[in-house]
Design a protein around this nucleic acid. Structure first.
Length: 112
DNA sequence: AAGCTGACTATGG
DNA sequence: GCCATAGCCAGCT
């Protein structure tokens, strides 16, 4: 389902700088609540669609950087996030709840 | 074509 | 709060 991918990428690109969101929430925003795994897979393949997709802003529901291993240097994910003002402790985002961005709450996307 | 995989999540012990 | 299990769905072998 290519449309699903495109929608995922569009949302990910809308994630404001210094904010993050979760796979499951993106899936939910697309109306496919159970497709959280597919969102992750989409991130894996994101570079084939658009290399500029900020996949590092997408983490799991715990704010854990589960996808860091899939980045070029795995450490780049944390570095990018910290660069955007996000604190990371033990591969986990500090104050995740505050940094979390709801894909359905548009309007915040002007920041970037 | 059938089965496996996974950057997930929710639930129960 | 940590571990095991079970749904989930598109892509890959």
């Amino acid at each position: 389902m290519n449309d699903f991918y495109l929608s995922v990428f569009e949302i990910v690109k809308r994630i404001p700088k210094g904010r993050v969101t979760s796979y499951g929430y993106i899936a939910k925003a697309l109306g496919s609540g159970g497709s959280s795994r597919v969102v992750g897979y989409a991130m894996n393949k994101s570079h084939t669609f658009d290399p500029s997709i900020p996949a590092h802003r997408v983490v799991n529901r715990n704010g854990l950087l589960t996808g860091k291993a899939h980045f070029n240097p795995p450490s780049i994910m944390q570095e990018l996030l910290e660069k955007e003002g996000i604190e990371i402790k033990e591969d986990q985002i500090v104050n995740f709840k505050e940094k979390f961005w709801d894909p359905m709450e548009l309007g915040d996307n002007l920041i970037d």
